[in-house]
Design a binder for these strands. Structure first.
Lengths: 114, 114
DNA sequence: TTTTTATACCTAAGACTTGTAGGTATGTAA
DNA sequence: TTACATACCTACAAGTCTTAGGTATAAAAA
């Protein structure tokens, strides 16, 4: 397994990534999220657990996520899903981030390098 | 003057925006940067001065920027330019951010909404 | 003439997110 | 039996940003 090149996230993006992943899936558990992100980015992006779990707990406290714990192969998994409020909020926050990224690109004016 | 819709930045992007703007320009002063960002984003993105000036000072302390103060119309302007080190570092940090943004898009998998 | 707006710089305090660095525990492979 | 993958967690420090002030000059509006 190769070491991720991007060790740090842009602060504020993690919770939106979580919400976006859960928009497309019924439910996910924490460890699964870390693996899915690695998979989607070909190992280039790593979600640290020290950031992930507090983020999940905060989204749950905000009422955007609900949990159900399940025992699989003798190990406890905590599945997270979007609440109804979470679905609405997710759409809003994702749109907000998308708008920001468009503006960021306007400022950066990056030339296509490939 | 319309109120910016994006009140918050993705933490970490500001310094790269500054470096990118200075890549294309000999020199800029703080206030000019805030106006240029507004202009480029049609007023949607606002750089707060409370974030901008500390960021400029840090980049200068890191040796990436140099300053020259000039009096224009009775008001002092502090012009910032990239140092030689700054030019190298700018290229690196911009590439790093671009790579991160690509990975972020892979995770977000945003559908074209317009 | 006085007040407001635009220009132009600055800092302090607090909120918030993240990385580092630990910890616990089970199942499986070496 | 040792290491690795799975699976959860927290405390602390570092860093960036927003909010909310401050100072000062020039020009425009009231």
């Amino acid at each position: 397994m190769n070491t991720p090149t991007n060790s740090s996230l842009l602060k504020g993006s993690l919770s939106v990534m979580i919400l976006r992943l859960l928009e497309d899936r019924e439910r996910m558990y924490g460890y699964e999220i870390t693996q899915k992100v690695k998979e989607l980015t070909a190992g280039e992006m790593a979600i640290t657990e020290g950031a992930l779990y507090p983020a999940l707990h905060k989204l749950e406290a905000e009422g955007l996520l609900t949990t159900e714990t399940q025992l699989v192969d003798g190990r406890a998994r905590k599945y997270y899903s979007l609440t109804k409020t979470g679905q609405t909020e997710a759409a809003g926050r994702i749109a907000e981030l998308a708008a920001f990224l468009e503006n960021l690109n306007l400022v950066l004016n990056l030339k296509p390098s490939l």
